[in-house]
Amino acid sequence: MTDGGPLLFVSGLIVGYEKKPVLNGVSLEVQAGEIVAIIGHNGAGKSTLLKSIFGLLAPWQGDIRIAEVPKKHHKPAALLRQGVAYVPQGNRVFGELTVKENLQIAASVVADQNLSREAFHRACNLFPVLPRRFSQRAATLSGGERQMLALAGAMITRPRLLLLDEPSLGLGPKLVGQALQTVSGIRSSTGAAILIVEQKVREVLTIADRTYVFRNGAVSYSGPADDLFDDAKLRSVFL
C-alpha cells in the first residue's frame, strides 16, 4: 500500500436490497493494523457494509478502495486471495466436514505451503480447543466452538484486512471477553487490520482503536473508542 494512505477507504457508499437503500452515503477509513468497531441498532446497515466491502453486494454508488486500489466490482474469491477475509454472522462453517477439514480448506487459500502451515499452527495455538476436536464434524460443535472455528479459518488465510460480523454472537459471558481478546490477539500476531461489527458495545470498545456509530444507514458519530467509555457520551451517540 502507499505510505500513509488508509488500507480500507469507503466513500459515499449507497447500497441496498432490491430497490430499498440500506446505506445512504457511508464514508469511512481503516488504517493498516487498526481495529475499528462499528456499532448501531439492528437494521442500521452494519452487516450490509461488510457484505459490500467483501463483494457480496454490488454498490449502487460510491467508492471502495483497498490499499488505494478500487474494489467496487471485485468478487469475494479474488478479495480473499488479495488478503481480505470475512467472517459473517452466525458462525458459518462446513457442518458436514471435520474441524480439521474446515481449517485445511482455509489453509488452501494461501499459495505458499510454508506460510500456509505456519498460519495453520498459529491458529491452532490461539484456539487450543480446535486441535482437540480435529476429527469431530463441525455441525456437532457448540455455537461457541463453531465461532472459534470460523475465526480460526479466517485467520489462517493470512488476511491484512479482516471483516468480522458479531464474533461474540452466541458466546457465554466468559467467552465474549475471551473472543474479543482473541480478535485483538489476531491483530497482534498477524498485523491485520480489523473492521468489527458488534452488539456487545462496551466489550468491543476495550479492543477498538476507533469507532463508527451507524444510524439509519449513515454514520452518525465517529471518533476514538476511548471517548465512548464515558457512559453519558455513549448513551447520547448510541441509545
Binding site: 436490497y17 430499498k20 439492528n42 452487516s47 454472522q89 454472537l169 452488539q199
Partner: peptide, 11 residues
C-alpha cells in the same frame, strides 16, 4: 413485503 433475508440479524 421485503424478503426475510434482507432484514438485519436482529430483525
Amino acid at each position: 413485503h421485503q424478503p426475510a433475508g434482507d432484514l438485519s440479524y436482529g430483525q
